[in-house]
Amino acid sequence: MRALRHLYSPIIDQNPITLQILGICSALAVTTSMTTSAVMAVALIAVLVISSLVISAIRRHIPNTIRLIVQITIIASLVIVADQLIQAFAFNVSQRLSIFVGLIVTNCLVLGRAEAFAMQNPPGPALLDALGNGLGYSLILLIVGFIRELLGAGTLFGFTVFVSIYDGGWFTPLNFMLLAPSAFFILGLLIWGIRTFRPAQIEPPDYKITIDPNRRAP
């Protein structure tokens, strides 16, 4: 049962986006619609799980001096394969994701889990940890994508939910929701919400301002 903690703790308690603030750039870029969010989430989970598994399996034989290059080589190869698969089987989505699938290589989350967990743990826990972190990332991506697509275009997965004024309905799309900064606000509100319910996540302030009672004006 303790092993399962690796799976569920990253979903909320150790969420890579809202607690560790990793992988923000892709969370901003691809969450304009549910479809792109979902494809990105699936691609990231696949890359993360397979790379963690492979790196964990050969971890005892990776020389320390070249370990980062070995990890990045494995991750980059998997990303290229994922990109090729998306181009072959989901061409329209690949056009909209453009360079962001390729940029999974630079997603701090993938290298972070490889270096921090897969290098020190056997393949079983490494797999669960990767899956848990991938699901935690996907959950945030889908929540942000849900809010942005619903309020920005009135649709979900491309299907109309609110009929927009352009089609004779009542809903005025919030164009701001389709711009990257809106994802910052939604992520900020999410982090605020989660930390209200999980006060353990609140970090102690680095500095405390104290006023010296004996201080005199210069």
């Binding site: 070249i66 190869s77 061409f91």
Partner: peptide, 24 residues
């Protein structure tokens, strides 16, 4: 290790590219 990892990765990437080429 460096040569083995890059060799295996090159094999995986190039076979994916070649096999999926007609579909793309």
């Amino acid at each position: 290790v460096a040569f083995l990892v890059s060799g295996v990765c090159a094999l995986v990437v190039s076979s994916a590219a070649v096999i999926l080429e007609p579909l793309q």
